[in-house]
Amino acid sequence: MELKKPAMAGTTESSDVMITLRPNPEGGIVIDLKSDVKALFGDAIEKTILEVLKEFQVENALVNVVDKGALDFVIRARMQCAVCRAAEIQFDWGKEDAHGK
């Protein structure tokens, strides 16, 4: 799936995460993560981001992440929203039926 425009989801409120997605003209996925808990949870945050990108089949993206201690479900939700906004698509909820089974 191709990202068509820059898009953002989330906030910098405590327990939230602000994610900005941009198309990457040079190809590939580049994640820029800022988080006070990066040393402890940086790998887990990046894993969730990559999982969601994979589910949407997004292969080229610049991902800017400002984490304020978000739990995994929040990161997942903000990523799903940012991808839908950047790709200008409506989410296919049927895809969730297979997720987690």
Binding site: F73, R76, A77, Q80, C81
Partner: peptide, 15 residues
């Protein structure tokens, strides 16, 4: 509305 829908869905399903 879209952001809230994703957040509530993931909260109820996973947290």
């Amino acid at each position: 509305k879209d952001a809230a829908r994703f957040l509530v869905y993931n909260a109820v399903k996973y947290q």
